[in-house]
Every structure is written in structure tokens, then in C-alpha cells.
Design a protein around this nucleic acid. Structure first.
Length: 572
RNA sequence: CGGGACGUGGCGCAGCCUGGUAGCGCGCUUGACUGGGGGUCAAGAGGUCGCAAGUUCAAAUCUUGUCGUCCCGACCA
């Protein structure tokens, strides 16, 4: 392709509201343009990358035995009502009513396709002989994000590969899951994207029922805990923390807690500064309302509560932080002064509370805290639970090394669903004894457009993008330095033709611009290999060839240029 | 949904406090020169200052409302 024949609007200056590298670079390199918050056009160069990633995904899905199909983005609302996801999605689900004649129809734009495909299988699958089956599609998904952000990393409309497996047994599910897991590893490797598979939501099936694939990146919205010792990795929300310490027995001889005045100081930070005490010696008392009943959750002052774990520990269906009025009625103090001593509601303590010998807590009285509070003595402590997020330096649950925490971008997710959807949508098969069972399902997603952004987020330098070879919009950028020089142009055209003939995607910058200008743009759009044809080199019969990541160009005789490029590409 | 910031030619910004002729850099057009890391000179085009109402003789500037975008947080099957 010749630059003047395509459409690559690069920008020297960055639009002021782009902050993260992928957003800035994708705008500057002319890969994307914004239509509105959370919706972007993929420009010709950007769309080429999307297609390359899609193609890698498609090849690996096919290799893993999945079959491609294509489902509608418009879906009847009724399906979401049957699976209960209308409520679960809430405002995230785009839904709208429309008319056909005098009928009123209620639609949703597909945020994902469990409903549609399970409904399809309900009609089509009759016998265990038709199983196992894994189907996938690459399609636009719609989610009304409350807050789209970071350019193309989080949008309301994005391209996703979603696959669904159907089996008649756990063995079939496990085999499909493993096949997808391995395909995902290959996909991210081929895309040149660093990734960490992490344990995620374990769901009702337990064990290793779900993994997320995280691309480590400073701007990732997710936190991953990782053990440098044994390789254990998990989503911070899901990582196990601490083991149960021994529950201390009540000490009759223990001195009573001492009340101290802490006027105006409600937060742990304020009080720890005022009392010059380590937050790790505090007990944070959070009042939650679980299924309409108040519960006091005790977490060490320097730790973060994890609502998912709390909900599970209580087997509660609903859980939210109590409003100020409820807190006041439970603790008889305003927000910020709650403590476990003398509270009448249920107490739920994190494992690490048991290990505290003497703690600081709220006094359930405005402007006062208690010091010298002994768990098990000054308040009842019979069991403890894992209720908090893992933190850096926590011991690894698998070995004893200290955990580290890294930011990650979630680029893929594999999940053992079980029979959740097949039961609610009545998708069943008959076994060899003519007995009816719900299909056993798995679902597997990759955010294709997010993968593109994640690649840019991780592969760039100060001058621009550095595309991995397999996903680069073109493989080679060919720069004739002076397009008015006939010799230069004829040499460049010759190399262009040879590269094209040997199957290499080449972009020739045939614009009548000064060399510096073209070099800057070449660095910005970041194709893996750059070939410069200029008057100086031409006199000696050489082209200058440089990989994007190298500092210096190699001088290569014109006749050998194409072979040289092929060798470079094989090394990459 | 809570908190914060910003809307002035395509992009980046100044002007606003203290009301009175809309400005700069980049980009764009035409021409000449130039030609190895975002050139030089000359001549141009392009903006009812997000929108609406109000105050005023007069509003980019003051007031109110509204819409949009971004950031932090909450949320994210």
C-alpha cells in the first residue's frame, strides 16, 4: 500500500483529554477516532490490526476444535428475563422498545450471548451423541458502561470473541475448558502480548473453575496478586489470604480497654496519626446490611474489606454498606466511631483479627476510641473468616513467599458455567438411557479490541508504537526519501514490488515530505521493519534497514534487501 | 451514581479576574526555495468563543440553566 492511496491521519499534537499511552498513541497514529464517550471508529490502519488479531483468534479457535457461527446483536428482552440477567445487568444492558405495526417489542443489544446460544441449543440438541460441541463468534458487544474510559480499553461497544462449550459430562466440560485455556495461551503469545493466567471467580463448581488472562500494564484496572516463589497468580479480589489463627481464649485478668478522646477524627488515618499508632493495630468495624439485617465486619485497620468474600461467609444474597442512619442506630455513634465492644448485632471477624493482642477500635461513642481491646476477651470471637483483599507482602497461600501485586488489563476470561443457563432456558439432552439432563456449559471470552489496546499499552516507547510482527498493520515501512528523485523512486518501487511478491505487507511512504517528517511518522506508527531508500545510499547501491526496536540501521545492498528483511522477520 | 476539571478555527493553547476590534503555535491552500530526524519565505482560507436564557448601551468575558468531554471514586453478568 502507498501512503498517498490510503488514509492515515497522524497527529503531531495529542488531544488534551487522552491520558493513557494506548489512547494517545492510537489517536496520534491515526488508528482510531472518537465518535462519543465510549465509541470509536477504527480507521484503516487500526482496523487492519483488529483484523489481524481476529484472524489469530480464529485460527486458534479452529485449531482447538471450536466452530465459528454468527449470532444477532439484537436480542429479545424475554430471554434475559428468563435467565434473571435483566436484573443482574441492570443499567449496563442496552435495552429499548420499538414498534412493528401495533405490536410493541422489547429488545436488548447483546452484552454477550449465553442466552441466544443456549436458546439455540435448546432447540437443536437432542442427544448426547451430538456432544461435545464448542461454538464461537467474533462480534460486537454492547455494554452501557457507567464510565467508559482510557480510550479503547473500556468502551460501550467493543469487539469480542465469545465461545460456548456444551457437554454431557464434567469430563467433556473439563476437556473443552482445557482446550480453550491452551488456545488462549497460544493466542496471546502469537499476538506478542505478555499475559498472566490468574485464578478468578470460582463459582458454584469450585476449584479451578475460572481463569482470567491479564496483561500486566501500569494502567490496568485490575489488580493481580502473584507469587514470585511458586507462580501462584490470582485476581486480588479472589486470592485467598491469611489462614485462621488460633482463636484466643478469654483472659479474666485482662485490664479493661481505655477510652481515649479522638474528637473530629473518624478515619483510621486520622486516629492513627493522632494516637501515633500503626493502622495494623486497629480493628476497622464496618457496618453492613446483609439481607436486611445489620452485621459488623471486623477487618484489620490496614486491610481492605472484600464484599464478595463477606457475602459468601454470610451466605447472604444482598449485601451493602449501611447508611449513616443505620450505623447510628446500631452503634449509637456517628460514622467513624464503630467498634466491636458492646455491639449487639452479629460480629464477623477476619482471620487476622484473632492474631491481634491489643487493638484500637471505635468506642461506639462520638469522638472516642478504645485502646487495649483484646479480641476474644472484650468482645466475643468464636470463628474467623477470609474477608479481605490480598495485599502486597501477604504470605502466598501455596508456599511461603511474599505476594506481589501488579496492575493488569483483563484480556480474556474462561469460565465453567455448569447448568445455570441450560436449566433456566431448558436446554437438555437425552443420555443413552433416555434420561433428560441439562447441558453442561462453559463460556470463553476475549476482548479483541481490548487486546489491541493492551498491545499498544505494553509495546511502545517515547517515539511511538512498536508493533509485534504478527499484529502490525503492515510489516514493513518503505521510505523513499525524495519522491521527486526518479532514481530513488525507481529503486523504491523495485523493492516494493519484490516485497509484495514475496507476501510481505508493505506500506510505502510516498508522500512529498521532508525526511525528518517521515521518520517521525514512521516511529509513531511503529511498523516492525523500516527500509530507507535515499540518494546517499543509492550511490553505493544500498538500502538502510532497521527494526523498530533497534537503534541503528544496517546497510544492505539493494539486491539483498528482500532476503535480509525476510531473515529479520524470522528472528522477531 | 457521588466528587473534581475543562469546552475559544482540524489539533494544542492565550484572552475571561478588571465587559468594548477574537489572538498565537501547529496543521490546511497557493507559489518559490529547500531536501537524511516534524524546514524557510511570501500570500491566503478557516471561528456567531458548546448551547440557551438573563444582566448590560455593549457579553468569549458576569449570572443561571443545560449539553458534551475528561479525571478520581462506586459499579462492571
Amino acid at each position: 500500500m502507498r501512503w498517498t492511496q490510503t488514509f492515515i491521519p497522524t497527529m503531531k499534537e495529542v488531544p488534551s483529554d487522552a491520558e493513557v499511552p494506548s489512547h494517545r498513541l492510537m489517536l496520534r497514529a491515526g488508528l482510531i477516532r472518537q465518535l462519543m464517550a465510549g465509541a470509536y471508529t477504527y480507521m484503516p490502519m487500526g482496523y487492519r490490526v483488529v483484523r489481524k488479531v481476529s484472524q489469530i483468534v480464529r485460527e486458534e479457535m479452529d485449531r482447538a476444535g471450536a466452530i465459528e457461527l454468527f449470532m444477532p446483536a439484537i436480542q429479545p428482552m424475554e430471554l434475559f428475563e428468563r435467565t434473571g440477567r435483566r436484573e443482574a445487568f441492570g443499567n449496563v444492558l442496552f435495552n429499548f422498545e420499538t414498534r412493528r405495526g401495533d405490536r410493541k417489542l422489547h429488545f436488548a443489544l447483546g452484552p454477550t450471548h449465553e442466552e441466544v446460544i443456549t436458546d439455540l441449543m435448546a432447540h437443536e440438541i437432542k442427544s448426547y451423541k451430538q456432544l461435545p460441541l464448542t461454538l464461537y463468534q467474533i462480534q460486537t458487544k454492547f455494554r452501557n458502561e457507567e464510565r467508559p474510559r482510557f480510550g479503547v480499553l473500556r468502551t460501550s461497544e467493543f469487539l469480542m470473541k465469545d465461545a460456548y462449550s456444551f457437554g454431557s459430562s464434567m469430563e467433556q466440560l473439563n476437556a473443552a475448558y482445557d482446550a480453550m485455556y491452551n488456545a488462549y495461551c497460544r493466542i496471546f503469545e502469537r499476538c506478542g502480548l505478555e499475559y498472566i493466567p490468574v485464578e478468578a471467580e470460582s463459582g458454584p463448581i469450585g476449584g479451578d473453575a475460572s481463569h482470567e488472562f491479564m496483561a500486566p500494564a501500569d494502567n490496568g484496572e485490575d489488580f493481580v496478586v502473584r507469587c514470585p516463589g511458586c507462580g501462584y497468580a490470582a485476581n486480588q479480589e479472589r486470592a485467598d489470604t491469611g489462614r485462621s489463627s488460633e482463636i484466643p481464649t478469654a483472659r479474666a485478668d485482662a485490664p479493661a480497654p481505655v477510652k481515649v478522646d479522638t474528637p473530629e477524627a473518624g478515619s483510621i488515618d486520622d486516629v492513627s496519626r493522632m494516637l501515633k499508632a500503626d493502622p495494623a493495630t486497629f480493628i476497622k468495624t464496618l457496618i453492613y446490611v446483609a439481607d436486611n439485617k445489620p452485621v459488623a465486619v471486623l477487618i484489620r485497620g490496614d486491610h481492605e474489606a472484600n464484599e464478595g468474600k463477606i457475602r459468601r461467609a454470610l451466605s447472604a444474597t444482598s449485601l451493602e454498606l449501611a447508611d449513616p442512619a443505620t450505623i447510628e442506630s446500631v452503634t449509637s455513634a456517628p460514622v467513624g466511631f464503630a467498634g466491636p465492644v458492646g455491639l449487639s448485632c452479629t460480629l464477623l471477624a477476619d482471620h487476622d483479627i484473632a492474631a491481634l493482642e491489643s487493638a484500637i477500635t471505635g468506642a461506639n461513642e462520638k469522638g472516642a476510641h478504645l485502646t487495649g481491646v483484646i479480641p476474644g476477651t472484650h468482645f466475643e470471637l468464636t470463628t474467623t473468616h477470609d474477608l479481605r483483599n490480598a495485599a502486597a507482602d501477604d504470605p502466598c497461600p501455596k508456599c511461603d513467599a511474599k505476594l506481589e501485586i501488579v496492575h493488569g488489563i483483563e484480556v480474556g476470561h474462561v469460565f465453567k458455567l455448569g447448568t445455570k443457563y441450560s436449566e433456566s432456558l431448558d436446554a437438555c439432552f437425552l443420555d443413552s438411557a433416555e434420561k433428560k439432563h441439562p447441558l453442561i456449559m462453559g463460556c470463553y471470552g476475549i476482548g479483541v479490541t481490548r487486546v489491541v489496546a493492551a498491545i499498544v499499552e505494553t509495546c511502545h516507547d517515547d517515539n511511538g508504537i512498536r508493533w509485534p510482527v504478527n499484529v502490525a498493520p503492515y510489516t514493513v515501512e518503505l521510505i523513499p526519501l525524495n519522491v521527486k528523485d526518479e532514481e530513488v523512486m525507481s529503486a523504491a518501487n523495485g523493492i516494493y514490488d519484490q516485497l509484495t511478491a514475496s507476501g510481505i505487507d508493505v506500506l510505502m511512504d510516498d508522500r512529498d515530505q521532508r525526511p525528518g517528517f517521515k521518520f517521525k511518522d514512521a516511529d509513531l506508527i511503529g511498523l516492525p521493519v523500516r527500509i530507507v531508500i535515499g540518494g546517499k545510499g543509492l550511490k553505493e547501491g544500498i538500502a538502510e534497514i532497521r527494526r523498530r526496536e533497534d537503534d541503528d540501521a544496517q546497510r544492505v545492498p539493494l539486491a539483498e534487501a528482500v532476503t535480509f528483511v525476510q531473515q529479520l522477520l524470522q528472528q522477531s
